[in-house]
Structures are given as C-alpha cells and as structure tokens.
C-alpha cells in the first residue's frame, strides 16, 4: 500500500505550523502520530497535498501539574506516555486506565492525545474520561488562541469545531472536587479493537451522598455524549445500588446508538446501562481508577 505524493513540513514552532496550515488551507493536513491520517490516506479517504508534522514541537509533549491551572497534558503526549505517567498515576489514574484500553502497544507508542480528539470518531477512548473530568483544551490558530470545554470541540462524527489552521496544544484537567472516576469499554477483542460502547463516570461523593456526577458515553452517538438526565437524577441523592441501576437505565434512554456490523443498537443500550451502573460504583468505591 503506497501513499499518494505530498509535500512535507516539520516546523519548529507552533506559530510556523499554524502559518503553514493557513497558507495551504484545505490542501493541507496536520499529522501528529499518523495512526489515523496515514490509515485514511492508504484507504484513499484522504489525499492531502501537504502534510504539516508537529513532531518537532517539544513543548506539546509534556504532562505536568501547573498550580492554579491543573494537570496539563500536551497534545503530542502519546497514549503510552499517559499509561506510564507518574503524575497521572498519582492524580488521575483513570486517564492511564483509559489509555491502556486503547489499541495495542505499537499504536500506543505512536498515537497521540490530540490526534485521538481531533480525529473525532464517536468510539474514541480518551475523550469520555477527559470530558468526565471536565477537561478543557487550548487551541492555537494563525489568528490567535482560545480555550474551550473538550465536549464542545465535537460537532459530529469525524468533525470538530477547529478551523483548518488551528492546533490543539494542550488538554487541561482542572483541580476539582470529583472523588473518583473511571472508564469502561467493551470491544470485540481486548486489544486493538474500537469500543462497541464505553462509559466514563466521574463522581463527587460526600458522606454517602452523590454531590455531583458526570457520565460520558462513547460509540453510542455522533460524538462522545454526556448522559445529562442520569447525572441530574443522581445529584444530591443517597447512594444505593438501586439508584445507580436507575441512573444506568436513564443513560441508556439518552444515548443514540446505531446498528452496525459490530453490534446492534439494542445491545449497545444494554452495555450503556450496565457500564453506567458499574463505572459509577467503581468510581464511588475505588476513587480515580
């Protein structure tokens, strides 16, 4: 399988990268780890005339804690950088927990956080846990920069609100009251398989009462989806197994799954119901896992 011809740039600064993307417009595509872009090019779904690589932008590779801001994950951090991050293991082990469920080792050594977000498939495994933890993204473009809630980045399957010259530079997990979080995924194989359905939950529990909850579902709608009715239903209530099961039912009603070759919509709804219940329970009992 050969790739079509294209021109290649690997700029040394974000400004230069945005400039190139803006100059070549629709002809250009940004490449990070390449695990989605190159597959699409081989499958003839994409034929950019120019690839702009962000591989030299060292500042996008960091994972660090910035007081007053939160945990900052550079968009070029690879999945295995998350898996083996000591900082994340200490603060939000649920993020490496989700990263570990992705693809397989080789892809995790190449694929990046930014690529997983901007590729914007509904089954992407990182957005749910990041959205559950109220992540925001910082975006830099040729004309300036902006910050946005991660959940507002997605506009549909394979589409985001990013302009062609915009680059996600970092994902920020703000300091928060959530006491636990986790992501559960079902794929047709333990490794190298996309989610048939997945649920991330983050909870703030105090004295047996659910003070706040965020539930995000993957692969059951056009974008990663919050189960807002289930979240509202949980708030302020005393935690019981029945309560969590009921939240699961509500989430299953809210999701918008499709039938495809991997599973029926009905089966996906069932997964959402069970995973919502289980992920809430796990986050309540075990914290960020």
């Amino acid at each position: 399988m050969y790739l079509p011809d294209f021109e290649y740039f690997a700029p040394d600064s974000i400004g230069e990268a945005c400039q190139l993307l803006s100059q070549f417009g629709a002809k250009a595509k940004l490449i990070s780890g390449g695990t989605d872009v190159l597959v699409k090019m081989k499958n003839e779904l994409l034929a950019p005339e120019v690839l702009v690589s962000i591989k030299n932008l060292e500042e996008l590779k960091k994972i660090e804690y910035v007081p007053g801001k939160g945990v900052v994950i550079g968009a070029r951090a690879k999945h295995n950088d998350l898996v083996y991050s000591e900082l994340l293991a200490k603060r939000y082990p649920s993020i490496p927990g989700a990263a570990k469920q992705m693809a397989h080792n080789q892809i995790r050594n190449s694929g990046t956080v930014g690529g997983n977000i901007v590729n914007a498939v509904p089954s992407a495994d990182l957005p749910p846990i990041l959205i559950a933890l109220s992540a925001t993204v910082h975006i830099v473009g040729a004309k300036g920069s902006r910050s946005l809630a991660l959940e507002d980045v997605f506009t549909g399957p394979n589409t985001t609100c990013l302009a062609p010259d915009e680059i996600i530079t970092e994902v920020i997990i703000p300091d928060q009251k959530m006491t636990g979080s986790t992501y559960m995924k079902f794929g047709l194989r333990a490794a190298g398989a996309l989610a048939v359905a997945g649920v991330a939950a983050a909870v703030w529990v105090e004295n047996g009462v659910m003070k706040d909850a965020r539930i995000v579902m993957s692969a059951v709608g056009p974008t990663p989806m919050r189960a807002k009715k289930a979240e509202d239903f949980l708030k302020g209530k005393k935690i019981t197994d029945e309560l969590l099961a009921e939240a699961g039912k509500k989430a299953a009603e809210e999701c918008k799954p499709i039938d495809d070759y991997r599973a029926s919509a009905e089966y996906r709804r069932n997964l959402v119901s069970v995973f919502t219940k289980r992920s809430l329970r796990k986050a309540i009992d075990e914290g960020h896992v």
């Binding site: 290649y8 390449g34 591989k55 080792n105 892809i107 050594n109 190449s110």
Partner: peptide, 18 residues
Amino acid sequence: TVLMEGKPVNACLLLAVE
C-alpha cells in the same frame, strides 16, 4: 514492528522522513 528508541512501533505507519 521495529523498535524506535527501544519501543515497538508499526513501521507501516511511520513516514521515513519522520
């Protein structure tokens, strides 16, 4: 699979220029 800085990656998804 090849090892890049000691880590396994898929050489079919790596541009030689990278």
